[in-house]
Simulated scan of single mutants.
Amino acid sequence: MITKTFCHIKGITEHKEQQLWRKGITSWDEFLEKPHLHNCPQHACTHVEHSIHHLQNDNLQFFQSLPSNQQWRLYKHAKPCFLDIETTGLSKQRNKVTTIGMFDGEKSNVLINGKDLDEFHARMKQYNMLITFNGKCFDVPFLKHHFPTTDLNMFHVDLRYVMKSLGFSGGLKNIEKDVGISRDEELAEVDGYEAVRLWKRYERGNKQALQTLVEYNRADTVNLKTLMDFAYKRMVAKLQ
């Protein structure tokens, strides 16, 4: 999808991009081969040439000018971290992070407060894209407050907004049900409020409560990938 993208180029809006597609210019190569069809200035051709070069060299930072609502287009070329956190409450100033779930598409890790939460900073260095649900409003601001030296200024696909653009609304678990994603029976009734209670039980010595919390957090991140794959296919089809 990214190789048919032009809205990261100065002067080319999403509307102009769609005009290019209708003219038969559906890739960077075609843009360079058919200048007579688009009549764009030379700087646009240069930008396309640079786009090809930087994508071949896995330098996604070159595409920072891509509108935030279109960053999903980089998904297939990114090193994404499907991320979800649990906390003791909604206030980043008064409450703390209890667990951080991280999934790279193959391996999942759940970092636990008091055990290995300090590994978060180092682990984030291997990724260049965040994929969350409501992370722009909650997870990332919370993490920036508690991990101020960790670089979280990377491409960020917040599936809450992507799914809304596809006609799905509500919380993560409601949308999971709408698209046919299921959870293990023992986790089906766990939500964010129960996650707070599970942590409190763990602090009182209930080790099983921590295990349930960890598996709940892990399920959130694993399901984010399934949802992202679903959304990516729908978004591509929507543009065609």
Rank of each mutant, 00 (worst) to 15 (best):
13 T>E: 09
202 Y>S: 06
145 H>E: 10
133 F>K: 01
62 F>V: 07
69 N>Q: 14
181 I>E: 04
24 G>W: 11
3 T>N: 12
6 F>Q: 14
107 K>D: 10
183 R>L: 04
135 G>C: 04
113 N>W: 04
76 K>V: 03
62 F>L: 04
220 D>Y: 05
15 H>N: 14
32 L>V: 11
119 E>L: 15
76 K>Y: 02
223 N>D: 08
113 N>V: 02
96 K>F: 05
62 F>K: 03
180 G>C: 11
136 K>F: 00
1 M>P: 09
136 K>R: 13
161 Y>E: 05
219 A>R: 13
139 D>W: 02
237 A>E: 14
227 L>V: 13
174 N>W: 01
60 L>D: 06
88 T>Q: 04
49 E>I: 11
214 V>H: 03
220 D>S: 07
236 V>I: 13
40 C>G: 01
64 Q>W: 07
68 S>K: 14
141 P>E: 01
75 Y>N: 05
65 S>L: 07
141 P>I: 04
179 V>W: 04
152 L>G: 07
171 G>F: 01
118 D>Q: 15
150 T>N: 01
213 L>N: 10
92 K>R: 15
73 R>C: 02
77 H>G: 05
173 K>I: 05
220 D>C: 09
226 T>N: 12
159 L>D: 00
123 R>E: 10
191 D>C: 09
103 F>M: 10
57 N>T: 15
185 E>W: 00
30 E>W: 03
240 Q>I: 10
90 L>V: 08
62 F>M: 04
5 T>H: 01
198 L>Y: 07
233 K>L: 07
64 Q>F: 06
145 H>N: 07
192 G>A: 08
98 T>N: 05
201 R>A: 13
64 Q>L: 02
216 Y>T: 09
150 T>H: 00
54 H>F: 13
214 V>M: 08
215 E>N: 15
219 A>K: 14
61 Q>H: 12
214 V>I: 15
63 F>T: 04
122 A>P: 00
178 D>I: 02
221 T>F: 06
228 M>H: 01
76 K>C: 06
33 E>Y: 02
166 L>Q: 11
211 Q>P: 02
214 V>D: 03
48 V>S: 05
132 T>L: 00
59 N>P: 02
11 G>T: 09
125 K>V: 02
1 M>Q: 07
192 G>S: 06
107 K>F: 09
12 I>N: 12
171 G>N: 13
